[in-house]
Design a protein around this nucleic acid. Sequence first.
DNA 1: ATTAGTACTTATGTACTACATATAAAAATA
DNA 2: TATTTTTATATGTAGTACATAAGTACTAAT
Lengths: 232, 232
Amino acid sequence: MSTTKLNKDLAPISVNTRADMVEIRLREYLNKKELKTGDVLPTEMELSEALGVSRNVLREALSRLRMLGLVESKKKRGMVLTNPDILGSFERVLIPQRMDNDTLKNLFELRLVLELGLADLLFVRKTAKDIKDLEAIVKNNKPEDDDIFRVSREIAFHGKLYEITGNDTLKRFQIMLLPVFDYVVKNENRSVKSNITHTDLVRILKEGTKEEFVVGMREHLRPHFELLKNLR
Amino acid sequence: MSTTKLNKDLAPISVNTRADMVEIRLREYLNKKELKTGDVLPTEMELSEALGVSRNVLREALSRLRMLGLVESKKKRGMVLTNPDILGSFERVLIPQRMDNDTLKNLFELRLVLELGLADLLFVRKTAKDIKDLEAIVKNNKPEDDDIFRVSREIAFHGKLYEITGNDTLKRFQIMLLPVFDYVVKNENRSVKSNITHTDLVRILKEGTKEEFVVGMREHLRPHFELLKNLR
DNA sequence: ATTAGTACTTATGTACTACATATAAAAATA
DNA sequence: TATTTTTATATGTAGTACATAAGTACTAAT
């Protein structure tokens, strides 16, 4: 029976395109334990022949994997396996305007959870210099500062906290979450004041305990949690 | 100086391919405020002509955006703007074998931070049924259970905690982090016992306070934090 | 013999053509 | 007007051709 005839009798069930399937097959292939970073993959022609698709389709799939940072392609040498940048692709889809309300809320919440969970790392990793940096950041805070100043101070302060953790992934992650945070806050422009200021938090970080810091941070973030209740 | 360090300081001069540049241009185009989900984009021919590249190159870039869930393409209708699945691409690159030690450590840490930050959400959202579910999960725990049992209990318990938060993004995120967690723990097969068991945590969640829960969780996770010190 | 330079080979990058396929939209039919 | 049929069109896939960069092998000069 000819292939064309067969294809007519048995139409493909999958709505997936060839590129989708090739992407999956390639990822399965790449994740095999035996393969390690730096290994060279077969050529595009070999792969496309093995998979039974045109070089075109194969390249569409490879293009995705290249974007993810799973592979790189060198002329003449071929494709080589690389370490993906785990947050790179995340960055590409973090578009507040494109997110539904639930997801926005979830990410907003995620940020609050992170912030509350930081205490332990902070108290393990903080140095005298870190405290000094924080004190410099909060020194010139005045309640009458306008919004733009307030936001940049907010970013500087919380950004520094993440920096103290020494966890680059965490820091980059929170930087990526900031626009989401901003977006949500802007859409609900209420300004509930907290009883705990950045200055208070620095003092606790310097002289207090983890437990006190968590309580302080919770109170500091309370306006945001309040906002969350309204979004629900 | 290590190669990875060198790579950070001296990133290779980017010799971006056409597909890379088209991807960037398209993302800029898609993120324009005027565009909203469901809007129909120009056809492939129109886009490729406007950008001055072959349809081939354009399709490689579109293939990436399709994978990210930024667009979908319908036959005859054309491409339509969609809401991306923000964690989908993350899932594709979370391959423990492919991650360097620093990243592994960072993600491991991230999970611990999340777990410690959960308390507030848990105490706001917990229901009587949730507590019952947790009690059922921990009921048959016996210290003499073998490893496989222990791991599945671990997953069930902590998974349920994330479920109580009612935050799907958070839950999916932690599910994706589990293999990383597993990978790190397996590679360092020490088994330090904690003084606080799942049963204790359930009791605190039922009758105690947020603050007590954080302290309890911290003690429960202490073996993992210890492990982290060794990785450093 | 070692080195420098050159030609060759090869795998990726890009462009173009052709046709299959599904389907929205238009036309024809009841 | 409602339903079916036809048509037009945008995406999906395949294949060919050539440009480009970069290993590889070969040659020549010191």
